[in-house]
Design a protein around this nucleic acid. Structure first.
Lengths: 216, 216
DNA sequence: GCTTTAATCAAACGATTGTTTAACTATTTT
DNA sequence: AAAATAGTTAAACAATCGTTTGATTAAAGC
């Protein structure tokens, strides 16, 4: 059997994929650089060489994730559909993204809740860059365009709703005896879309009622 | 100023709270035992003495979280309300739980997606113990009592929806300029309840339609 | 008051952490 | 072909990891 190393991806990409795989199952902090290097089939020093440190890998993973999100966002918003259709398309695209880039998405999402000093500036910058986008989106979808509190509740709710499957992933096959295939993800996408859209409709009604009660 | 050490909680509890605080912000794997001991104002050896290791702390945190969930579950299920009211009460109680035990809940939830070897058996056991409960709940709430796939989608969706605020917590104040107080949590609880209930109603309709399409 | 048990401590354990160094090979550039 | 750059390596770096040891103090049992 000839060595297929020539057909292997470049070292930098191998490191990124190996790291994403390990981060997604064990979490960023629980993974050592030697473990990554071994899985990527490179020398440990290559991590600092290409990413100037372990933290650099996570930063690139998170950036790639946000770029994917942005691409979906731009694509759907450019189309000329009614708000509800746009929202359903967004959900479909996000589920599709997670199917194709599962480990990258899972890493970006599961590391969000944590506040490590070495990522403080990075996170602030990433958050800043995406604020306008989130707000623009809420305006396009015609969801509480002017209410800060509702936005701060709805946006995380929608995102964690869409990604819920991946947050609970290692638990799900242990609890329910189901086969997770393309058919399952179709049902998943459709169900989450409906849950989100019908739910948002209800919240909109509640929002309007609250306004009336407040005498506005 | 006299030393108030006598009024301090017992060492074991201090360790638990210090660890929960640190785990919730930095994640389990990123926190060292010396950091915990320092914050708890105890000697490092006390961690192994009381919890037989760092992993023991996380196990107790997770167990306490599940006990709280179970208590809420038992309480609401024992009451005689229609399914929708029960579900809304569950959400209210869960939000209340998160307000009072924020760091414990956040730790239990944020560590769920990870699979560390030292917790493999523990997680399997915890999952096993709660399968019957989840299934019983879906039956009581009259939500797809017999459909495995829908259950496996809806249950994680509902949970991550309810807990979404805490998953995104460090991000939220950076993106939206809002004051997070009791009033905010009231709105949060009401909004999430509506989103979930109206969303579930929509999914139920979809479920019934699918059955008809399948010719059942 | 003696003995036993529980609790706490500083110190050291070996293992592992992320990163850097300096030598080396391979590839480009000139 | 010579020089320069890029890529890769094993080894060592200091720092930190979680845990254990053995001594010491405090509390409880009799």
């Amino acid at each position: 059997m000839p060595k297929d190393e020539t057909q292997e991806k470049e070292p930098r990409e191998r490191i990124l994929e190996a790291a994403a795989t390990l981060f997604s199952t064990k979490g960023y902090a629980a993974v050592g650089v030697r473990e990554i290097a071994e899985l990527a089939n490179v020398n440990v020093a290559m991590i600092s060489y290409y990413f100037s440190g372990k933290a650099g890998i996570l930063k690139e993973i998170v950036l790639r994730y946000f770029d994917s999100i942005k691409a979906i966002y731009d694509k759907v918003l450019a189309e000329n559909y009614p708000p509800e259709t746009k929202l359903r398309k967004i959900v479909d695209e996000l589920v599709e993204l997670m199917k194709n880039k599962t480990i990258f998405c899972k890493v970006a999402i599961t590391e969000m809740p944590f506040d490590l000093p070495e990522f403080a500036d990075f996170k602030a910058e990433v958050a800043r860059r995406h604020v306008e986008y989130i707000k623009l989106g809420l305006k396009v979808f015609e969801i509480f365009p002017e209410n800060q509190k509702f936005s701060s509740i709805i946006t995380p709710a929608a995102l964690s709703l869409i990604f819920s499957h991946f947050l609970f992933y290692p638990i799900i096959p242990k609890v329910w005896q189901i086969e997770i295939d393309d058919e399952y993800y179709d049902l998943y996408s459709k169900t989450i879309s409906t849950l989100l859209l019908d739910g948002l409709n209800g919240v909109m009604k509640q929002f309007i009622n609250n306004k009336i009660e407040d005498g506005k």
